[in-house]
Design a protein around this nucleic acid. Structure first.
Lengths: 158, 158
DNA sequence: ACGTCAACGTTGATGTGTCAACGTTGACGT
DNA sequence: ACGTCAACGTTGACACATCAACGTTGACGT
């Protein structure tokens, strides 16, 4: 724990953090302006739109998104209020309401998706050479590997 | 705008997003547990601790952090309530109170800094080769360059 | 002096994210 | 039947972040 950062590392870290912050902000802003969806809205609606029957259990959404229970509950409550989806209690398992995308929600995500994907291309991959894209993949995997075994959120396992 | 992502790019994007999410969460959690500071707390206290006189104008903090006015105001209000800093109105410019770190705030950030920096080393640079660290720097700069001219937040220029 | 404008910062409303605490229900052992 | 337990999801409190609207004050031209 007594090792600090070299000057180069410190500089790289600064750039890295700033890049993440700006990129996230740029993507979220464009999404919001074009379609009125936040990034979390988009993630939820995208999964629902891909699902068979345009519906999923909360549990499946949590697994895909790696979100906490309460985080999903809050997000779904707000989205239901805006008419993007509905939660209908399911007869076979009363404690697991089915989350279903509405026509409005489906229209929103389908309208937003092409431009969103195009922006990822323009802002992330276009500025990089093919080699750098491969480097980025390797770097992301290496750091992820170093983070293995760390829970993404507080473990509730007593 | 009609260009999508290749299969490889899609995979890389997924890893990249997941890595950012997990890394940020890991750093924030450790900071919180060890010192009771959030990441925004740490950023503010670090800048104040480095400043001459252990004090800065709000404006200088905003430039360094690239934060919005209101974001900084809310953050400072909460931190002042916890005794980490004080805002004292300055005689020479009544509309620009001076933000000053307290002894408690200074102690907190000085206690937190070594472990925080060590974690950045362990989680980011240790899993990478020297070449990859250089790649990461180049990638971050390339993407940042592609984001130039985009305001980090809504421009208030009427 | 006076009006206008830009910059300082503040506030309230709302969305996002985390934690702790809770209620419901199905599975399982007794 | 009856506890216990784990998993489902919900709620309330609070921190974080953004936007719109607002007051204050200094600079500048008239």
């Amino acid at each position: 724990m007594e090792i600090g950062l070299t000057e180069n590392e410190s500089f790289t870290w600064r750039n890295f953090v700033r890049m993440q912050t700006r990129l996230k902000a740029a993507l979220a802003q464009a999404l919001q302006e074009e379609s009125g969806l936040s990034y979390p809205d988009y993630q939820v609606l995208f999964l629902l739109s891909e699902a068979t029957g345009h519906a999923l259990r909360g549990r499946d959404l949590r697994v895909e998104l790696q979100w906490e229970k309460s985080r999903l509950a809050h997000q779904l409550r707000r989205m239901e209020g805006r008419g993007l989806l509905i939660r209908e209690s399911c007869a076979e398992d009363p404690r697991a309401p089915i989350v279903k995308i509405t026509a409005a929600g489906l229209a929103s995500v389908q309208a937003a998706a092409p431009a969103h994907v195009a922006r990822i291309h323009d802002l992330v991959f276009k500025p990089l050479t093919d080699g750098q894209a491969a480097d980025l993949d390797a770097i992301a995997q290496a750091i992820l590997h170093g983070l293995r075994d760390r829970p993404s959120h507080r473990s509730a396992t007593s």
